[in-house]
């Protein structure tokens, strides 16, 4: 299947079909604001512990500082990532990945695919891994990472993570120069819609809000609330007094960590965090994700007996 797709959604659908056929559970996006697909608990938390895992999903991602009011050809404050996580990383993961590029219409016979060193590190997740950015004809189309540590825990077995920046990849495959001009559904559909039809107004509104309007005092307060709540959740006894079962609550706590992380991103976009404070905030978020990771490995999904 190397015929060229015609729309943004067709590329997403082909990736879903491809990875479903390779045995991944096709999950839905996590219902919270996150900066990248990695934050989805299906990646961060599921990369911990010994249980095997294979999942793929689209994750809407928000980076308030990247907002450009919908004017920049390829910068957005809200965009989509396609994320694949397989544990343990299979020996043919590179080939599987290349197959996914073929599935979305990139003909390996005509293009130059390169694996260029790019070590991944997420200071807020306390995570790092080794891998590459994958280049197609000089353009970065994906991140390919073997997780070594998440939330301060060594990954054993190691997960292989693939992240596709969907808009950029699709623009390349579809030959579009400005993201807002990209066909979202089929151009011959009765009601053809472009990416701009769907998202231009949202980009404008969120850019204005993120940069100039968001109430920084409220955001700071929310940040502190989320931070407190996260720690409070995990301070409860692991045995639920009502049911008498061990119920650790790593996931609700992690939701609070995600919230804190996004609030930090918003504060950063508002320009109220100085260079020195920045490190301190990142450290506070990392402390939360570490707490959650510590809790998760004590749960069944985290591999606890």
């Amino acid at each position: 299947m190397t015929d060229t797709p015609r729309s943004f959604q067709e590329i997403i659908l082909r990736l879903q079909t491809y990875w479903a056929a390779k045995g991944c559970a096709i999950l839905q996006p996590y219902d919270m604001e996150v900066g990248a697909g990695t934050f989805h608990p299906a990646t961060t938390l599921r990369s911990l512990g010994a249980l095997p895992w294979a999942a793929a999903y689209v994750q809407p991602s928000r980076r308030p500082t990247d907002g450009r009011y919908g004017e920049n050809p390829n910068r957005l404050q809200h965009y989509y990532q396609y994320q694949v996580l397989i544990k343990p990383s299979p020996p043919d993961l590179q080939d599987l990945y290349l197959g996914s590029l073929e599935a979305i219409g990139i003909n390996m016979e005509m293009h130059d695919i390169r694996f260029v060193e790019d070590d991944w590190e997420s200071p807020t997740l306390g995570a790092w891994g080794l891998g590459w950015e994958v280049w197609c004809d000089g353009m970065e189309v994906s991140q390919f990472t073997y997780f070594q540590q998440v939330g301060g825990h060594d990954c054993h077995p190691v997960s292989g993570e693939l992240t596709y920046g969907l808009e950029r990849l699709a623009m390349y495959v579809l030959g579009v120069d400005h993201v807002m001009d990209m066909p979202f559904n089929d151009p011959d559909a009765p009601i053809p819609l472009t990416y701009g039809d769907v998202f231009k107004q949202a980009e404008q509104e969120h850019s204005r809000y993120n940069f100039d309007v968001a109430d920084t005092d409220a955001l700071l307060k929310h940040f502190e609330d989320a931070e407190r709540e996260c720690a409070a959740i995990l301070s409860h006894d692991q045995i639920d007094p009502k049911t008498g079962h061990k119920i650790v609550m790593a996931l609700p706590a992690y939701d609070q960590a995600i919230k804190a992380s996004h609030l930090f991103n918003l504060l950063d976009a508002r320009g109220v965090i100085s260079v020195t404070e920045r490190q301190a905030y990142i450290g506070r978020v990392r402390a939360l994700t570490k707490l959650c990771a510590d809790a998760f490995v004590q749960t069944a999904a985290g591999g606890a007996k």
Partner: peptide, 18 residues
Amino acid sequence: PKSMRWGAGSLKWVRPLH
């Protein structure tokens, strides 16, 4: 300078050794 594990193994190399 930096090495890694992969899959379920414990060997370390710069990237998976095939």
